[in-house]
């Protein structure tokens, strides 16, 4: 019965649950969400695709002609690519609602403006 008091108190208090899909929780600074590439800064060194532990990043082409393909369905948001990128071309955003039914929609392509 030692929980009775707390139980009675809780009965008249607001629940702590967040009504998630309707009420989104703000994420803190430095949250590791979906990474995005800034192709104006990218030099196409291919390091991000090489260090990626889950093979979520694919680089098509070489050097300054390259394109980046990012498969979010494989990404595990470790942010090693951000850490390895020598030029701040990759940033972690605060996007976290990335689940879906269609894998083909989880491919983000980054092309260079010519």
């Amino acid at each position: 019965m030692s929980l009775l008091k707390e139980a009675l108190q809780r009965l008249f208090r607001k629940p702590v649950t967040l009504k998630y899909p309707f009420e989104k929780r703000p994420v803190p600074e430095g949250f590791r969400g979906r990474p995005v590439w800034d192709m104006r800064k990218c030099i196409g060194c291919g390091l991000c695709s090489n260090v990626c532990p889950s093979g979520a990043i694919e680089m098509v082409g070489k050097g300054l002609q390259s394109e980046i393909k990012h498969y979010v369905d494989r990404c595990m948001f470790c942010s090693q690519c951000v850490e390895s990128c020598p030029r701040n071309a990759i940033k972690m955003t605060q996007e976290y609602e990335l689940a879906g039914f269609d894998r083909s929609k989880m491919l983000y392509e980054y092309k260079r403006e010519i």
Partner: peptide
């Protein structure tokens, strides 16, 4: 959850702190 929130603030993720 207090700890989990601290983790999120400190490392950017609740579970895989990296």
């Amino acid at each position: 959850e207090v700890v989990m929130d601290l983790f999120e603030t400190l490392s950017g993720n609740r579970v895989h702190y990296a």
